[in-house]
Amino acid sequence: MTQIQDFTGRSALVTGAASGIGAACARTLAARGAAKLFLVDVDGAGLDALDLPGEVHRINGSVADEALWQDLEPRMAGLDHSVVNAGIGAGGPIADLSLAEWRRVMAVNLDGAFLTLATSLRAMGSTGGSAVVVASVTGIKPVPGIGPYGVSKAAVAHMARIAAVESAKKGIRVNAIAPGGVDTAIWESGEDFQRSVASIGREATIKAMAKTTPLGRFASSEEMADTIIYLLSDAASNITGHVMVSDGGFIL
């Protein structure tokens, strides 16, 4: 009997695949039999470092680049699964942000997610498939100081729900996941994080940040990947338009 989380012979797209949640998803899909992977990231060296079986297409570029998707779309015809994951962080109160900084975040987190999802849905056609958009609990619970990030993640979660309604008749499921704190490289660009790491080290910094989470820890990329792969898989065949919160209780 075929396992319901078996991806043997299937194709999948993963953005932000060079590290963190994206890399964990790529490794899990490959381990579960995916025959063809399309991996997109601005970090070409990170993509090259992924040692994966099967047919792997590494695309070095920004998800916000429309030309990248115009070139890639015909190559992905018949796509089965898509992980819309690429994103960047931001800091600062809304009143202090420049439009340029706002647009920098929206270009990747919202425009890039739109281009990724829209292209994926067209590539899946009418033969069915599934997509998971990586949102954030900060798109549900307001957190001060990260306005563009939280707004972009609220937007992509709702985009996933709209796409789910639009795509259901084609047999395509679209869901979102809203992680809380995850120990990934996205924190590295934050000035407060960098100062804390210089003072007490990275491990202690992550541990201190996790004190606001009832479970008292940040999740690993592999934990997030397990949930994403479940939503992509046939095990979740009756789930669409859902925003699954996986945050260690942070939203409570």
Rank of each mutant, 00 (worst) to 15 (best):
L50S: 01
T15R: 03
G44A: 14
G54F: 08
A24M: 05
L47P: 02
T28F: 08
L39H: 02
G22E: 02
G61Q: 06
I4Y: 13
A18Y: 00
D43M: 08
L29S: 06
R58W: 07
P53H: 07
A35S: 15
G16V: 00
R32D: 15
F7T: 00
S19D: 07
D43C: 09
G16N: 02
S62P: 09
T8I: 12
L52M: 08
L52Y: 01
A26I: 06
L39C: 06
G16H: 00
G33N: 12
T8A: 10
H57S: 10
I59P: 09
G16Q: 00
S19K: 06
G22T: 06
K36G: 11
R32W: 13
A30M: 14
D6I: 01
A12K: 04
R32S: 14
L39W: 01
A49K: 09
V42W: 03
G44W: 11
C25S: 06
A26E: 00
D43N: 14
G16R: 00
A18M: 06
D48V: 10
A34R: 06
L47I: 08
G16D: 00
A49S: 15
A12T: 07
G54C: 11
D6G: 02
G44H: 12
A34Y: 05
L37M: 12
D48K: 12
G20E: 01
A30D: 08
R10W: 03
D51R: 13
T28C: 13
L39V: 05
F38Y: 14
A45M: 13
R32I: 14
T8C: 08
I21E: 01
A31Q: 13
V14H: 01
G20R: 01
V56A: 05
S62Q: 14
G20W: 00
T15W: 04
S62C: 15
R58Q: 11
Q3G: 13
